[in-house]
Write a protein that binds this DNA or RNA. Structure first.
Lengths: 205, 205
DNA sequence: GTCTATACGCAGATAGAC
DNA sequence: GTCTATCTGCGTATAGAC
């Protein structure tokens, strides 16, 4: 069933598509208006400026970019299950939103202040780093994994999952992959990352 | 001793600084002229357009971004030495060029065609993926490392080293690190990456 | 709320003097 | 080669009719 969208909803959807693909500096209000099926003036009627509209899209994007793994912490019986669940759900999300990672990386490096605006909002923080910290230390004390800095482990997980979505054009060129080959590579990568992390942490007893 | 630079050299240096910091869409010809100590007209005298100037800087950046590890292949006695040499030299380069990684990632995703122009130039290819492929397969056949797709290993190495330089603002926020803390984190990261890779490949006998 | 028309500033590129 | 002055188009934002 097709639902009628209000002008405001159509603008948000259009702005999200254009900003994520082109970035703040490359996006054009005209493109957003065209995609939403309205004209430029109406954009300024609903949202005063390009900056205001961008901030809304940016904040929404940051929230979906930072892994929402609170639930994983409370359901995963051990860190092996956590890693597996994280890698699978995070990479699936990235496959479905191919522009998200390059967008976030670019914008946080060029306008860090908008990142802080996002963080100073009410509600639960975007990522429970303390909980992750405690879980890793618990597993180390139990002798389940080797000694490792939780910050380093977090960076491993993020970097291993994210890089293919950031460097895709480069990798396609260096590897001489076409799109189907790259998709196959991504599919195999989930298990490879899980294997890499678990073997290094001594989880594959 | 201070060497006199020609106007053309000063422009290239200024363009490199501005383009890497702001990106193609965010860079301004006026900024480049100011930094080079000349005026806008002279930019167009030496380089016909912003696009032409950008392409020069972009090609140079890609060459320094793709690891130049040909020499490592011929001097490293084994893959453990290769990994260690790669991680140390690559991360040192990235520390010294903090804008390089975000710049490349953004531009290749927004103008992939310029990447192909870069690659179709004469001279040695930017990265000897075949040589890497053969080395990994040789080590697998010798029983020195576990079975692994060389493309996956390459992606591990790149992603693990690069991500902190791409997500720095995000990580500083999530980890609540200031600059000295982040630098210390980067220093420790080199050995952590080497440990992660070697233990997972069964190289730490 | 939605539109057309337009004001305003900015940035890339050029003309032409020296 | 290097400069000042200027042209031109584009993009954000606003004015005002309906």
């Amino acid at each position: 069933m097709i639902v009628e969208q209000s002008a405001e909803e159509r603008i948000i959807a259009a702005a999200k598509a254009v900003f994520l693909e082109k970035g703040m500096a490359g996006a054009r209000m005209q493109d957003i208006a065209d995609r939403a099926g309205i004209n430029k003036a109406l954009l300024h009627y609903y949202f005063r400026s390009k900056d205001k509209l961008f901030l809304i899209i940016f904040q929404e994007a940051v929230m979906s970019f930072l892994p929402q793994i609170q639930s994983l912490f409370y359901t995963a019986p051990d860190i092996s299950t956590l890693i597996r669940g994280f890698v699978q759900s995070y990479m699936t999300m990235l496959v479905n939103q191919p522009y998200l990672a390059p967008f976030i990386i670019h914008e946080i490096n060029h306008n860090p202040s908008s990142l802080w605006k996002t963080m100073n909002e009410p509600g639960p923080g975007p990522f429970p780093i303390e909980a992750f910290h405690q879980l890793v230390e618990k597993e180390i004390n139990l002798g389940n994994i080797r000694t490792i800095d939780p910050f380093q482990l977090w960076t491993h997980m993020m970097g291993l999952c994210l890089f293919p979505f950031l460097g895709r054009p480069l990798m396609k060129m260096v590897f001489r992959f076409d799109d189907p080959q790259f998709d196959a590579f991504l599919g195999e990568r989930q298990e490879e990352i899980i294997l890499l992390l678990t073997t290094s942490l001594n989880l594959n007893k």
